[in-house]
Amino acid sequence: MSKGTVGISEFKAAAGPVRGSRGPMIDLLVGTHSRRIFGVVVFFLLLEFVTSLELVPAIYLPRASSVVQRIIELLQELKFLQHVGATLYAWAIGLALATVMSVTVGIIIGSSNLAYRMMTPVIEFVRPIPSVALIPLGILLWGQGLSMKVILVAYATLWPILYNTVYGVHDVDPIAVQTARSFGLGRLSILRHITLPSAAPFIFTGIRVSASIGLIVVVGAELLASADIGIGSFILFVSSSGGHMDSVLAGAAVGGLLGVLINSLLGAIERRAFAWRYMGTDAQ
């Protein structure tokens, strides 16, 4: 990668008019990075100040710093890490299932004009139903275990991926397709070489959006179902015994941290794999 980058910047320096030099981009990234950290610090200090006023007794609303301390303790406990692992496991299987199904169905709907016109209203209707509302139904149908969590995550994460796949496939550039056709490529080769690569960034965005939704649903399901294991069941357990509000909030915060980590990881992959989308073409 670094080798290629050097070659590119050399060429750009030589050719001049090509847009998007590396330097300012790195500045921008570093800039937003430090600004983000600054924002987090300010927010934490604010929380610490408010909680230290003890407007609410500390037993109900502990100090921000004691929650942070509890997070650090928890992350060193094997039992808690098993909870985190169980949550991530259900989340990953559910998301993987949803991805496979949505991408397959999305390609079919997106490549057929008739299916596209028939299915988009359905998708638009079902998509905004909050998946969390279906958790009680899921518990009723599939109990408290892994399969309930996986099915609920899969259902919740299906829609954004399906939606993005359908639109990504449907909006593939007709000129690119005509070019391929004129060179004698068949339907499957066009799907492989034109449609899928050009829809891939959309599909990936769908996966990234779904990843966060899936995390909310899996923790919520664990909480409502009083599952044996998972971040949600940990939160339920410590809250039911009373006087452990720091643990409750720490558990919730770890869930949030997972979300941030997953999102930035996927975002980084996205920027790297689909760099071509962010580069200006010099057309007209």
């Binding site: 000129i175 070019t179 004129s182 004698g184 490529l185 080769s189 071509w276 580069m279 073409t281 057309a283």
Partner: peptide, 29 residues
């Protein structure tokens, strides 16, 4: 029969390098 379109930026595939773009139609010959 080969075709060259006005919209080169839409006719070339941005995720493929120059070489791979030129080579793609030949892979099906």
């Amino acid at each position: 029969l080969a075709m060259v379109f006005q919209e080169y930026n839409r006719s070339l595939l941005p995720w493929l390098r120059v070489r791979a773009n030129v080579e793609l139609p030949l892979r099906y010959q």
